[in-house]
Design a protein around this nucleic acid. Structure first.
Length: 213
DNA sequence: CTGACGATTCACT
DNA sequence: GTGAATCGTCAGC
């Protein structure tokens, strides 16, 4: 969890997660398993990476908080109905690009939102992308900041996470089950009772986790 | 075609 | 704590 020891050089000893990881039926299991994993972006000659410390699960057509609630199928959400292991990136509030991972089999629109990471590589690039001068904890805290720092934009929707542009990997960093805490999701009050479901997972005590202290 | 609004962030009081 | 920013998406007409 040391910040950027390598100034944007590819991290060693990473094992990319495969299709089997994403193509599972329980999106909560996947959202939880993603805590501690590493997200890497590598394009435009720039390499950035961070350890995932906060995720949210969106449980398909029965989840009032999901864009796919009730089976709603639009141009924007179409990718959620595709195969597992694709990126779903959409514009929120006209400003923020939010990065999600499509899971489960085709026609089952599950997704996991990555809400916070701890920077591991390419911090100078992240600073440039975000316009920040110092690498404080806000650099990659919150889903809008994560995408901005990693350079992810809506154009990356449909991008396969099995390739070398955007992918998730493990370095076998040990995470104890008790270090992962489940809480209600952020900013989904419109979802009624579903807003209370414990579908948000955080790495306990990590300073990059969003929300009030 | 139109209007309302969002899985947010940041500046300011 | 409050409100602005900012625009693609979507439902409704």
């Amino acid at each position: 969890m040391q910040p950027d020891m390598n100034n944007g050089v590819a991290l060693p000893h990473l094992q990319k997660l495969g299709y089997e990881f994403y193509n599972r039926t329980n999106v909560l299991t996947i959202a939880k398993a993603l805590i501690g994993k590493i997200i890497v972006t590598h394009f435009d000659g720039q390499y950035t990476a961070g350890r995932i410390v906060e995720t949210e699960a969106y449980n398909g057509i029965i989840d009032k908080a999901s864009h796919a609630y009730g089976g709603r199928r639009t141009n924007r959400t179409e990718v959620m109905y595709q195969q597992a292991g694709l990126a779903y990136v959409y514009l929120c509030y006209g400003i923020h690009h939010l990065f999600n991972i499509v899971t489960n089999e085709q026609d089952t629109p599950h997704a996991v939102l990555v809400r916070a990471v701890a920077p591991l590589a390419g911090i100078p690039v992240m600073l440039e992308r975000t316009g920040k001068k110092k690498a404080d904890y806000t650099l990659t805290r919150g889903p809008g900041n994560v995408s901005k720092a990693l350079g992810i934009v809506t154009g990356h929707t449909g991008q396969s996470l099995l390739g070398d542009v955007i992918y998730i990997a493990t370095d076998n960093f040990p995470i104890k089950p008790r270090e992962i805490v489940a809480t209600p999701r952020i900013g989904v009050d419109y979802a009624g009772a579903d807003a209370l479901l414990p579908y948000r997972f955080i790495l306990k005590g990590n300073p990059y986790v969003s929300g009030k202290k």
